[in-house]
């Protein structure tokens, strides 16, 4: 039903939209650009948009000085681990809520959602105590568990909304065809749910990657992921703009790319299926 839009109007909206888009994107663009400058050029007045000496040195320095790879590895393990664990626990739960709903299903879902609203700072001390007691402080496994717990409601909800779109008759057909519960999940449900599960994984990796309360408060040296790595730049010495930029670029690049793939799922996941 596209209507012919006058070219002049289209040029106007295009220009405006691009201006706004570039303005919003500017801090990221500027960070990436600065990461390729020398420290002196990074604080040049006027700012250099071009004509600077392209260098990769900052990346090397950042890696050397603060062992970027170790933080990156922690981030990968923690974000990946918590998502995987969450999926393993959430798939059966979401499956049963979507296909064997009972009167309490809705209440359980809403209650799960309510645990997501618990302000982290309210339970910071008890969690630290428990972590000290269990020897989980500054361990990756500890963070995996915590991040899994805070994201579990979102995972369950997202999977639930995806599973509900799979018609129940297909699962009944599988049952009639001789599939047991195991085969039903393995051969029928999972393949049909793969796209939904993939989006859920994507969104949760992003959320876990960027989580910056528990990762800052429950880690010191060993298990610190990239959020903590960057926070260590908040009290710098000497010239550090280019290095900060390089470190920032490295911290956000992987997730920026993942994020662009998950725009649609983002809406569904973060509104608990209320907006699709």
């Amino acid at each position: 039903m596209a209507r012919a839009v006058s070219t002049r109007r289209k040029i106007a909206t295009t220009t405006l939209a691009w201006l706004v888009g570039l303005l919003i994107f500017f801090p990221i663009f500027w960070t990436i650009l600065t990461s390729f400058k020398t420290e002196a050029q990074a604080i040049n007045n006027p700012p250099l948009f071009w004509g600077f000496e392209f260098t990769l040195e900052n990346y090397a320095v950042v890696q050397e000085r603060s062992d970027y790879m170790r933080f990156l590895w922690n981030s990968v393990i923690i974000a990946g681990g918590s998502t995987l664990l969450g999926i393993l626990i959430a798939v059966p739960a979401a499956w049963s809520m979507a296909f064997v709903p009972s009167k309490r299903t809705k209440d359980i879902l809403l209650w799960m959602l309510s645990t997501k609203m618990l302000p982290a700072v309210g339970v910071l001390y008890p969690i630290s105590l428990i972590f000290v007691e269990l020897g989980l402080l500054d361990t990756r496994i500890g963070l995996i568990v915590i991040l899994m717990l805070i994201n579990l409601p979102i995972i369950v909800w997202m999977l639930y909304t995806y599973f509900r779109e799979i018609p129940g008759e297909i699962l009944e057909a599988a049952r009639m065809d001789g599939a047991g519960l195991k085969e039903e999940i393995l051969f029928v449900l999972t393949p049909m749910a793969i796209p939904g599960i993939a989006s859920t994984i994507l969104l949760n990796v992003i959320l876990a990657w960027n989580e910056a309360f528990w990762t800052l408060n429950l880690t010191a040296a060993n298990a610190a992921p990239l959020t903590a790595f960057i926070a260590s730049y908040s009290s710098p010495e000497g010239l550090f703009y280019a290095k900060l930029s390089a470190a920032s670029t490295m911290a956000i690049a992987p997730i920026l790319i993942l994020g662009w793939f998950s725009q649609k799922q983002l809406v569904r996941g973060l509104t608990f299926g209320a907006v699709k």
Binding site: A17, W18, V20, G21, L22, I24, F25, P27, I28, W30, T31, T34, I206, W209, N210, A212, L216, L226, T227, A228, I230, A231, Y233, S234, Y241, L244, S245, S248, A251, I252, I255, L256, L258, G259, W260, Q263, L266
Partner: peptide
């Protein structure tokens, strides 16, 4: 344009705070 506009959401909070604090 959509991608440009959405990008900040994927920047981890510590990065965006530091970038704004120092670079901007």
């Amino acid at each position: 344009v959509r991608i440009l506009v959405i990008a900040p959401f994927f920047v981890m909070p510590t990065v965006s705070a530091l970038v704004w604090k120092n670079m901007m």
